[in-house]
C-alpha cells in the first residue's frame, strides 16, 4: 500500500456505536467493558447493537467471498444511524472501513457504504484524534511492550497513533521489540492451514517481545493476542498480552473490571 491518505477527523460526537469484534466478545469481554466505560467517561453515549457478531473477515481472507459478503451485509445494515462506529480492533476496523465498500458494492448503496466507511474508527484512534483524550496515569512505574497488528499498521495506518495514546501514561516506559513491524503469524486461517510457518513466526515474535523484559504486553488486536498468548502459554512464559483498553482502564480510571 502506498501512503495512507491523511485522515481528517470530525468533532467529538454525542453518540457512537461500539463494535467489539467476535474475539473480544468471546475471549476478552472485560476489554469491551473497559473500552465502553472509557468512551462513556468522555461524555459519549455508547450504542451497543445486540445483533453484532463478526465482521466476516475470516471468510473473506480465506477466499469465501460469498459467505463473507452475506455476513458483511447483515452487519453493515445494523448501522442505520450516521454516527461513528468505534471498533475494538485495527483488523476488524480495516475490514469495515477498507473492504466493505468493495465487498458490498453490488449489494448495497455506494453512497451509504462510503458514508459508513468514513465513520469507522479504531478505538484508540477515536480516543486520541477525535476525543483528544488526556490520560492521567495513576499506576506504578512499569515497562510495557506493544504489538501493533499488521492491519493497524499498514491498512489503517494507526500504529503510531496507538503508541502516542499509550505514551500519555507517563509512568509506563514503552519499549520497542526487535522486528516490531513484522507479523506475528496469525492471519486468520493461515495460522491453522500453515501451522508450521505460523509457529515459526509467532515463536520469533514471542522471543523478541520477551527480550524486552517488559512487564506488560499490549495490543489493540485480539487476533494477534490469541496467537501470541497461546504460544506464550504453551511455553509457560509469564508474559500474557492484554488489550490496551483494559490496561488504560486499570491505570487511569480506577481498578478492576
Amino acid at each position: 500500500m502506498s501512503a495512507i491518505p491523511i485522515r481528517l477527523y470530525p468533532e467529538q460526537p454525542k453518540q457512537v456505536y461500539l463494535y467489539a469484534s467476535c474475539l473480544v466478545d468471546m475471549f476478552d469481554p472485560n476489554a469491551g467493558i473497559a473500552a465502553l466505560q472509557i468512551l462513556e467517561a468522555q461524555g459519549i453515549e455508547v450504542l451497543w447493537l445486540e445483533q453484532q457478531s463478526c465482521c466476516g473477515q475470516p471468510a473473506y481472507t480465506s477466499g469465501y467471498t460469498d459467505s463473507a459478503m452475506k455476513v458483511a451485509k447483515q452487519q453493515f445494515e445494523l448501522f442505520d444511524t450516521d454516527i461513528p462506529v468505534v471498533v475494538l480492533s485495527g483488523s476488524c476496523a480495516g475490514m469495515l472501513r477498507k473492504h466493505y465498500p468493495s465487498l458490498l458494492e453490488k449489494e448495497c448503496d455506494s453512497d451509504a457504504l462510503a458514508k459508513f466507511s468514513n465513520q469507522v474508527f479504531e478505538w484508540g484512534e477515536f480516543l486520541l484524534n477525535i476525543c483528544q483524550i488526556k490520560l492521567l496515569d495513576k499506576g506504578e512505574t512499569t515497562k510495557a511492550v506493544v504489538h501493533n497488528s499488521c492491519s493497524a499498521r499498514r491498512e489503517m495506518g494507526i500504529a503510531e497513533t496507538t503508541m502516542r495514546l499509550l505514551k500519555q501514561m507517563d509512568k509506563v516506559e514503552l519499549v520497542e521489540p526487535k522486528y516490531a513491524s513484522e507479523c506475528c503469524g496469525f492471519g486468520g486461517s493461515f495460522a491453522k492451514r500453515h501451522q508450521d510457518i505460523s509457529l515459526a513466526m509467532v515463536a520469533d515474535k514471542a522471543k523478541h517481545l520477551l527480550e524486552t523484559q517488559a512487564s506488560f504486553l499490549l495490543s489493540a488486536d485480539w487476533g494477534c493476542l490469541l496467537n501470541i498468548n497461546s504460544y506464550l502459554e504453551q511455553q509457560q512464559s509469564g508474559m500474557r498480552g492484554q488489550h490496551i483498553a483494559t490496561f488504560i482502564w486499570q491505570r487511569c480510571y480506577g481498578g478492576e473490571l
Binding site: D25, D28, P29, N30, W48, E50, K192, L199
Partner: peptide, 24 residues
C-alpha cells in the same frame, strides 16, 4: 490442538461481552 502442539488452544472467557452488556 487447533494450531499444533506448541500453541495451546485459545481459552474463551467465562462470559461473553453480549452477556455482560445485558447484565449491565
Amino acid at each position: 490442538a487447533i494450531w499444533g502442539p506448541q500453541r495451546s488452544n485459545p481459552k474463551p472467557s467465562t462470559k461473553t461481552l453480549h452477556q455482560l452488556m445485558r447484565e449491565r
